[in-house]
């Protein structure tokens, strides 16, 4: 989960919120793309389809909080990968997880 997104119950969602990742149905088909802005009509439709939770963009973090969060994530990854110095593929994995955590 990247710092700028949060997962909420559909019943707490309101029009104007923006999806932080693609919303899939139970069969893996796309219901709504990443970045879609929710409207009352869309919310009704999602409720009808039985969607329970959605991931939305969360801009409630300040830049300073975001920087602190990034540092926390990078530090934790450095600990998990503490024995990976000079291991090409392991380093590549660490970088790709860092990128993933910072998306959004």
């Amino acid at each position: 989960m990247s710092p700028r997104q949060t997962t909420i119950d559909l019943e707490d969602a309101t029009a104007g919120m923006v999806l932080s990742s693609v919303l899939l149905d139970a069969g893996g088909g796309t219901l709504l793309p990443k970045g879609a802005e929710l409207t009352d009509a869309l919310l009704t439709s999602l409720r009808r389809r039985g969607v329970e939770r959605i991931a939305i963009v969360d801009n409630s973090l300040s830049d300073a909080e975001l920087a602190a969060e990034r540092e926390r994530v990078a530090k934790r990854l450095a600990s998990l990968f503490r024995k990976s110095a000079n291991q090409n593929a392991t380093n590549a994995l660490q970088n790709s997880i860092l990128l993933y955590r910072m998306e959004g």
Partner: peptide, 9 residues
């Protein structure tokens, strides 16, 4: 994290 194989990656 275990060592990831360069070849597999």
């Amino acid at each position: 994290v275990p060592r990831m194989s360069d070849t597999v990656w």
